[in-house]
Each structure stands twice: as C-alpha cells, then as structure tokens.
Design a binder for these strands. Structure first.
Lengths: 126, 126
DNA sequence: ATAACTGTATTAATCTAATTAATACAGTAG
DNA sequence: CTACTGTATTAATTAGATTAATACAGTTAT
C-alpha cells in the first residue's frame, strides 16, 4: 500500500502523508476505513513508529483522517477536502501554463493535451 | 535578480539553481551572458560563497552554464535544454489534466486558466 | 610584476531537521 | 488482565545544508 523511496530527498513522513492523501482522494480508501495502526505500519515499512505517528498527526491536522485513542485512525469525511484538492489542481494548471508560456509553447499544444485526456467529446474527433 | 525564501524548506543553493534556470529558459539571460561572480553574488545575498559555488557547479553539471577559471561563469548554449524543458512541461500538463479529470473538474475550467495566462488574444475578451 | 579580480578545492565547524530509541500514559476490546 | 489502539516526551543519532577559513590557479589591467 505504501512504498518508500529513499532516493527521494523529501522526508519519509511526508511521503506517507502524500500517499494516503492519494489513496483517499482517488476513492481507493473510503470514509471510515481504518488505517493500519501506528505500530504495525512502522513494522511493515521497517521504520520507527514515531515517524508514522508524525505522518498521522499531519494527516489529522489537514483533516484527512480522525483518530480515536484505543481504537485507531480512520478516513475522515473528505468532501470538503476534495474541494480544496480541486483548487490545488487549478493552481497547478496555472503554474504549468505560466511555465509553458515562458518556454514559448503554443497555447494550442496545451489545449490539445487537455482534449486528449478529457476525450474529444466536446470537440472535433480525429 | 535572485530572491531567497527562507521559509522554503528546499536548500537555498537549489533555489538559486532554479532561479537561474528560469532566467535562462525564459530568455532573460541570453547565451554567453556573464553571471555574477561567486563572491559578489554571495555578498549580495548575504550568504557564504561556498553556497553559490555549489549552485554554479550544479548549473554547470546540468549544462546550463560554463565556467572559465579567471574569467567567470557564462550562460551556455541551451537550445537543447529548452527542448527538453518543453517536453517536460507537456508531460506536466498531461499529469495535471489527468488529476483534474479524476477530481471532476470541467474541461472548461482548465481552458479558462490557459487563456487567462496566455491572454485572450486568440479567444473572446471579457 | 603586482594588484585585483575571476573560478575551484579542501577541511572543519556549526546548525537544523529528520529519524530513531526508549519509555510512559490512556483508552478499547476480548 | 491482556493485548491491542493512539498519544506524548525526552534524548541520542544521523544526514544534509551552510558557514568559515584558507589556499591555489588563471585573467586582466596597470
């Protein structure tokens, strides 16, 4: 479920946070699904439980999960989170477009990619 | 020319590398333009010359600049680099579009952002 | 040649953040 | 009571970035 990349120079607690976010945003992990326990996941990944603890604390702070002492950690209701994810992807789109513009990439190249991804439904077919 | 962000958790030598890459890729710094000297830029940014040295070494390793002992560091011929940068941004565009699609963002939202960035020249105005 | 610039290299010290380690405490469930 | 859960805390370790202090080598102008 989680794979660590030690070549990645980002801290591993951050990799764990990101990975769970992906799983929840994509719907693979549904609301109220229980996450692996702090200690068991630490065992699985061969890392210290404190590092998992930190990742889970971060996920909770961001609203992705909720934790109950003695029971476990669970996927939160993240309808609102999906909204913020949508905002984030729009920001990313803007950044990409700015970069493309700076490189002299034509507007049409970007539009074509979007159409390819979304399918040619609203536009002309090949 | 260079502004450091100490809140950014990436190392500052990396920020410097990225900033120069932007300046060169966008054409602000043309081929054979001399970069500020290691020591003078260190003075300007109030950081250690070794950090600039590291940034320049990285830029040279990546092929963005060339350095001549006793003379200085200069913008390299980076036509090939621009091409690969363009490819990279197109991949990024595809990734962004895929993510947006997965989140249920409408195609038009992406197109609007592109138009905003590129200016409304080719489309309708507000 | 010499002074004042350039880049480059090296070694040690310092600093910060991430991670580990070792516990301890508190709540839940069988 | 036992064995799980999450949570908190303090100390030690590790790794990387940065600084510091030099030294050496090449260029340029005086």
């Amino acid at each position: 479920m989680i794979i660590l990349d030690y070549r990645d120079r980002r801290p591993i607690y951050e990799q764990i946070v990101e990975r769970f976010q992906e799983l929840m945003m994509s719907g693979v992990m549904e609301q109220d699904t229980q996450l692996p326990s702090v200690r068991s996941l630490a065992m699985d990944l061969s890392i210290n439980p404190n590092t998992i603890q930190r990742a889970y604390a971060e996920l909770e702070r961001k609203g992705y999960i909720y934790s109950v002492k003695g029971k476990g950690s669970f996927v939160a209701d993240n309808g609102a989170l999906k909204d913020s994810k949508r905002e984030a992807v729009l920001k990313k789109q803007e950044k990409t477009a700015l970069e493309a513009l700076g490189l002299g990439v034509e507007r049409e190249r970007l539009r074509d990619i979007i159409d390819k991804v979304y399918g040619r439904g609203g536009k002309n077919d090949d």
